[in-house]
């Protein structure tokens, strides 16, 4: 038996079997959603991939409320865990990450994660390294209700010496195969382009591991750039990537993935990302003031994402919309408030 983080497969099954799966209006404020569904000590699945469709608005609200001893589960991420790590570095008594189950924490073209270095090199967080496929396959196992999933990579890697994977001889071929334990976070936090009031989600661009993550988790909070009519959603049933009964809360948050990329709507805001990342790097090198100022301005100094966006020059917002090369969303729907 292994120690399960989040829910064990049997607990996850029991939880879902008892859950209200009705098709009901799940709109609420982001404050309320975080109060209800994110608890101290939770295993939190962070949706998106590196800095694309990161659930930044949800993470900022978690930070404003303060949550401790979180386990973060993700394949690759940048902004989401960086913001949580920054909050922890500034005031560990208010926000803290206890553990990370992950494959990659950095910002690709925008640089490494200063706070991954800060947290790990000071031994402030427990690590469990996996590959991107491993984390995705673990969530897939969770989403389809099986306790483990066989996988071929990374057999031969040192990752297997410190994570909970097991290598067995395949009972059918006789060759070694790796078994990954399912992942069942307590809550998945996911940003999408479009959702309806019931929680059906239509994503643009890569789906990353968001559908699996939502369906594996006990709860899911969805923020969306646009809330759309249910009838518009169901015009294309096979474009629904996350089904309503997997979702607990839906909040319309335009620019909820800013300063990251949201396919079809806005590209990376390099300037803002560099400002944040630069402040993180200064903290790592011993000067917390710029990061404290950043949080006071953009997170603690605002109530929500709208107020954050109000602090960004309009020209900068227009620029990230103009350079976004993803396919634009369909326009033939009524936008709901």
């Amino acid at each position: 038996m292994i120690e399960w983080t989040g829910l064990s497969p049997d607990e996850a099954r029991q939880f879902l079997a008892n859950k209200d799966k009705s098709k009901r209006d799940k709109r609420m404020s982001l404050k309320e959603a975080v109060q209800k569904f994110v608890k101290d000590g939770d295993n939190v699945g962070v949706g998106g991939f590196v800095n694309a469709r990161q659930p930044v608005a949800i993470v900022h609200e978690i930070i404003r409320q303060g949550r401790k001893d979180l386990t973060l589960s993700f394949a690759s991420a940048g902004l989401g865990p960086e913001y949580l790590a920054g909050a922890m570095a500034l005031d560990e008594s208010k926000n803290s990450i206890k553990r990370m189950e992950f494959a990659y924490f950095a910002h690709e073209a925008f640089g490494i994660s200063p706070l991954l270095r800060y947290l790990t090199e000071n031994n402030k967080v427990e690590l469990e390294d996996w590959s991107n496929y491993d984390m995705s396959a673990r969530l897939k196992a969770g989403s389809i209700g099986i306790p483990f999933i066989p996988c071929r990579s990374p057999l031969g890697s040192d990752m297997l010496k410190t994570n909970r994977a097991k290598v067995i001889d395949c009972p059918f071929t006789g060759r070694p195969i790796m078994l990954l334990p399912a992942s069942h976070p307590n809550v998945a936090i996911i940003h999408v382009q479009e959702a309806d009031i019931y929680g059906n989600c239509r994503t643009q661009g890569p789906m990353f591991t968001c559908p699996e993550m939502s369906m594996a988790s006990a709860h899911t909070i969805i923020t969306c750039d646009r809330l759309i009519e249910h009838d518009d959603m169901t015009r294309f049933p096979n474009r629904v990537t996350i089904p309503f009964f997997s979702v607990d809360a839906v909040i319309e948050v335009p620019f909820g993935a800013f300063p990251g990329n949201c396919n079809g709507l806005y590209y990376f805001d390099e300037k803002h990302t560099a400002e944040f990342r630069g402040a993180c790097e200064k903290l790592r090198k011993g000067d917390p003031t710029p990061l404290q100022n950043y949080y006071d301005t953009y997170i603690f100094g605002v109530e929500n994402t709208t107020e954050l966006i109000n602090k960004i020059p309009l020209s900068q917002i227009q620029y990230i919309q103009k350079i976004e090369p993803g396919i634009r969303l369909d326009a033939g729907y009524t936008v709901l408030g």
Partner: peptide
């Protein structure tokens, strides 16, 4: 492992 001299970003998909 839990307190490395220098921590790098991690595998991502490279190992896969």
């Amino acid at each position: 492992y839990q307190k490395p001299k220098t921590r790098l970003p991690g595998s991502g998909g490279a190992s896969d």
